[in-house]
Amino acid sequence: MSHSSVDHHRLRLVVRYTLLSLIALMFIFPLVFMLVSSLKPDHQLLADTASLRAFLPVGDISLSNYDKAFERAPIFLFMFNSLLVTAVTVVLSLLLCSMAGFSFVYLNWRGKQLAFSIILATLIVPFETIAIPMLLMVSKLPWLGLEGLTWGWLNTYRVQIVPFIADGLTIFLFTQYFKDLPRELIEAARVEGSSWWQVYWRIVMPLSGPVIATAAILKFLVMYNQYLWPIMVTQQEQYRPVLVGLQYFFQLNTAWGEVMAYLTLITMPVLAFYLVLQRAFIASIASTGVKG
C-alpha cells in the first residue's frame, strides 16, 4: 500500500469518526442537559439555557432539586407502579406473542392467513380511537379475587396490564423472526418425537434472543411511557405511573430544576434496561431490519 493511499485511508477514518462523534453528541446532549440542569437552581438553569453552560455542571450545583422533587410527589411509588406494570406486561407479552408467532409460522390451522392479516391491520389503528370503547369495556368487566366477584377494573394494576399484553407489532416481529429459523431443526425435533410445546420452548425460544430483546425493549418503552390510558383508568394516586406523576411538577410557576430531577430519576430504568439488552437489540435490528 502506498503512502498516499494510507494517508487517504486515515483521513477517511478521521472524517468518519468526527462525524459519528458529532452525531453521538447530538443524541447525548439532551440527556446531559437534563442531568446537569437537575443540579442547578431555577434562576441559574434558565439563565444558562442561552449558552454552552447549559451542558456544564458549573455554578451553584447541589442536589436540592432532588430533595424538593421527593417532597412534591411520591416518586418511588410512581416508579414502582410503572416498573411493575411494565415488567409484568413485557413478560406476558413475550410469552403470548411469541406463541402466536410460533403458531402462525409452524402450525397449520384454518383461517391462519386471515387471522394474521387482521392482526397486522391493527397496526394502523391509533390507540386514541379505541381508548373510549376500551374504557367502557374495562369499567364493566368482572374479576374474581380475594374479595369475591367484583365488577369493573378501574383503579387496579390489571387494567393497565391486560389490554396491552398482546399487540400486532410484537406478534409480527416474532412471526418474521421465526420464519428465518432453519426449518430443518424443527423438523428434526418433530421426527425425534418432540411435542410442539417442546419445540417452542426448547428449540425456538432459545434461538430467539435478538427478537426477544427487541420486542422487550419496544414493549418496555411503550408501557413505561403510558400516559393517556392511566389518566383514564386510574383515579387513585396509588396506581399512577411515572408519566402521570410528571404532571405533578407542572404548576403555574413550574420548577424546572425539579422537573429535570424527576426526569433524570425516571429515565434511569429505561437506560439501564436498554444497556442490558443493547447487544441483542442491535443484532436483531441487523437481522430483521426493524428499527425502534
Partner: peptide
C-alpha cells in the same frame, strides 16, 4: 388529588 394538567381528562373519562 389529581395533577391539574390531566384533571379534566380524568373527570371526563
Amino acid at each position: 388529588s389529581f395533577p391539574q394538567e390531566s384533571y379534566n381528562d380524568s373527570v371526563i373519562a
